[in-house]
Simulated scan of single mutants.
Amino acid sequence: MNGSAWDEVLAAAQAAPYPVEMRAPDAERAESCLAELGITTRSWLGAVVAHTGGILVDHGWLRVLGSGGDGLPDIVAQADPASRWLVVGCDALGGQFAWVPAAPGAPPTVHYFGPDDLGWLDLEQGYADWLHAVLAGSLTQFYNTLRWPGWETEVAAIGLDEGIHTWPPPSTVEGEDLSKASRKAVPMAELVSFHHEMARQLGA
């Protein structure tokens, strides 16, 4: 496509220091998502939606949302029209990345809700900068305290609509060391709701 950012996305993915898998797009759903979001393939977000059902990064630890399929929701299904927040990715532990509108005149930035601190952190990166950093290897340091020996095998074994629930939760002192926690696969929607409910109860 003329003017598409897809070649840039693809080049970054091919140069990644860990495995990156592009899931096949749903052409009809991709077109619908682009129209609903009002974006084009000239942006990295639009290129990802148009050309992928989602991107699995670092053995599937991070699922970057696209037009959906194979257990991945499409990106519009995760949108919150009221706040205009757009969930653009989730990780194997139920953490979420959201593209969030900024102050008037300022570009949106990506925020992260982590299962360890149960709060939204502004990463101070636009979507393209965030995804480029992810594909360049930022996940290794970013998740340094949220992984355990052999996580790659466990994550690869779960469905794309599942995440790994750990008990005690990583937001507790007892659950900080995930190598000692009980771990099991649960539906991703259930896992995300669990962490947000914990945050609500704690007033986070």
Score class of each variant (00 low, 15 high):
Ser4Asp: 04
Ala5Gln: 10
Trp6Val: 08
Asp7Val: 14
Leu10Asn: 13
Ala11Glu: 12
Ala15Glu: 12
Ala16His: 08
Tyr18Met: 10
Tyr18Leu: 09
Pro19Glu: 09
Ala24Ser: 10
Ala27Arg: 04
Arg29Cys: 04
Arg29Lys: 08
Leu34Phe: 04
Leu34His: 04
Leu37Gly: 13
Gly38Gln: 07
Ile39Ser: 05
Ile39Asp: 05
Thr40Tyr: 06
Thr40Ile: 05
Ser43Asp: 06
Gly46Ser: 01
Ala47Glu: 02
Val48Met: 01
Ala50Ser: 13
His51Ser: 01
His51Thr: 07
Thr52Lys: 00
Ile55Asn: 01
Ile55Phe: 02
Leu56Ile: 03
His59Ile: 10
Trp61Gln: 06
Leu62Gln: 06
Arg63Ile: 12
Val64Leu: 07
Val64Arg: 00
Gly66Thr: 03
Gly66His: 01
Gly68Ala: 03
Gly69Pro: 06
Gly71Met: 08
Gly71Gln: 03
Gly71Val: 06
Asp74Ser: 10
Asp74Val: 07
Ile75Trp: 03
Val76Thr: 15
Ala82Tyr: 09
Ser83Asn: 14
Trp85Tyr: 14
Val87Cys: 11
Ala98Tyr: 12
Ala98Gly: 05
Val100Leu: 01
Gly105Lys: 11
Gly105Cys: 13
Ala106Met: 05
Thr109Trp: 03
Phe113Asn: 07
Gly114Asp: 04
Pro115Ser: 05
Trp120Val: 08
Trp120Cys: 07
Asp122Asn: 01
Glu124Arg: 09
Gly126Asp: 10
Tyr127Ser: 09
Ala128Phe: 07
Val134Ala: 01
Val134Glu: 10
Ser138Tyr: 04
Leu139Asp: 02
Tyr143Leu: 12
Leu146Ser: 12
Trp148Cys: 14
Pro149His: 03
Gly150Asp: 06
Thr153Ala: 15
Ile158Ala: 00
Leu160Thr: 05
His165Tyr: 14
His165Glu: 15
Trp167Cys: 15
Pro168Tyr: 02
Pro169Cys: 08
Pro169Glu: 06
Thr172Tyr: 09
Thr172Pro: 13
Val173Ser: 11
Val173Thr: 14
Glu174Asn: 13
Asp177Val: 04
Leu178Trp: 02
Ala181Glu: 00
Ala185Trp: 07
Val192Gln: 11
Glu197Thr: 15
Glu197Arg: 14
Met198Tyr: 13
Leu202Arg: 06
Ala204Gly: 05
Ala204Phe: 04
